[in-house]
Amino acid sequence: MPQTRLDTARIRAARQVIDPAFLDTPLYRCEALEPALGCAVSIKLETANPVRSFKARGTEIVASLLADHGPQAVVCASAGNLGQALAWSGRRRGLDVTVVASRHATAAKLDRIRALDARLELVDGDHETARKRAAAIARRDGIRLLEDSLDIQTCEGAATIGLELADSTTPFDTVLIALGGGALATGVGHVMKDLAPETEVICVQPLGAPAMTHSWHQRRVVTTDSARTIADGVAGRYPIPAVLDDLLLVADDALLVQETSIIAGMRKLHDHAGLIVEPSAALGIAAILENRDRFAERHVVTIVCGSNVNIDDYHRWIATAPTHTS
């Protein structure tokens, strides 16, 4: 097993801390998608929970540790899903939660953070600006800074998805994972390499936000000046070195996909799986659409990682997507 920062025993123990509402999410073969994609496709559905994304698997661990041993206040930067998850986990345990986000973040995500009683601070600029502000608040107030992907709990929480995939009675060849900061990819990837090493681990990122993918291919941190994608949940520009080190050990490939393919993937999931998803959750389908020959005759699992989306934006996007199945 490659020596990442993660530990499979800790990941197994994490299942005892995480609220069962976020565990054992549906995993099923979606035959209705297969004619359009040319391969066997299974969906791991991480949207059927109270925060509609996988992020609470990690924030449940963080909040539990803080409630038992740490400061009773925590701050994070978020594009929306992490903040919502931390607000949910923190409110349940009586923690004081502050979330810093770009004022341009998805409004539906910001509304849910407010509804969960977190303090929300909006900044001009993008997610990297929010990260700097969150760090400044933590230093000023002496509170816990939760850094997605760098904090091992976010990775090991996400890794519990890998345990559920590895325990599946249905074998599959490839798992497609949305790649942003890297918590989901390194977490699931670690477990696959440990418990199901024959499974190919492929990360997928938008062409307009390619920093981590370029870093993986060049085996060094590569930053970008901007991120231009509708997939706001994976639009980072500054990969974290320690996370990249883990990703290099557990990922077999990293692919970039176009915005038109992401939108087409959202439409496919709507039309053939009955799922309304945010753009990041459609990255796996987008990868299949752009690489049909590579995945033909294979059984592919895609992790549908979130469904927090402004409905007006969603309808506008999928209205531009082709409706044919080839």
Rank of each mutant, 00 (worst) to 15 (best):
C155H: 05
T59I: 02
C39T: 15
N310T: 13
S215M: 13
V222P: 13
R112A: 11
V97Y: 02
E156H: 01
K132R: 12
A209D: 11
L176S: 05
R112N: 09
A321H: 08
D167M: 07
A134G: 11
P241Y: 06
A87C: 08
D312I: 07
S168M: 01
H270S: 11
F54Y: 15
A235K: 06
P239T: 09
T59F: 00
K193R: 14
L95V: 04
A13L: 15
T160W: 00
E121V: 15
R57Q: 01
K55M: 12
C76S: 15
T170I: 08
A159H: 01
I137A: 14
A242G: 10
I177E: 00
E259M: 05
V41H: 03
R114D: 12
H270I: 04
V222R: 05
H127V: 12
S168G: 05
P206G: 07
T98A: 06
G284R: 02
A118M: 14
P322Y: 09
R316I: 12
H104E: 08
A85M: 04
A9E: 14
P71K: 09
E128N: 05
L95C: 12
L6D: 00
D167Y: 02
E200F: 04
I202N: 01
E278G: 03
L184M: 09
D225R: 15
A159Y: 01
G157K: 00
D126W: 03
A36S: 07
G70H: 09
C203W: 01
A159F: 02
V51S: 06
R220M: 07
G284L: 04
P241F: 11
G306Y: 10
R228F: 15
E290I: 04
R93C: 12
D245R: 13
E297N: 14
H272W: 03
D312G: 09
M192P: 12
R29E: 12
P322C: 15
L163D: 03
A319E: 07
V222Q: 14
E164C: 00
T323H: 11
H217N: 02
A79N: 06
D7F: 00
A183Y: 00
A118P: 13
L120S: 14
S261D: 14
M1L: 11
A108H: 08
V74F: 07
I262H: 03
Y238K: 09
T223S: 13
V188F: 01
D7Q: 06
L283E: 02
D7L: 00
A40P: 15
A77R: 11
S53V: 02
R292Q: 14
E164G: 00
V250I: 14
D252F: 07
G162Q: 01
I230T: 10
R5A: 12
G58S: 07
Q258G: 09
G284S: 12
S215F: 07
S102V: 06
D148V: 14
V277W: 03
T213A: 06
G182Q: 08
L256Q: 10
G70R: 04
V309K: 02
A32H: 09
L195Y: 13
V123G: 02
M192D: 08
L23S: 01
L150P: 05
E34C: 04
L37A: 14
G125T: 15
S78I: 03
L275R: 06
L184F: 02
I311F: 12
D141T: 08
L116H: 14
D313M: 13
W88M: 10
A130S: 05
V304W: 00
G181A: 13
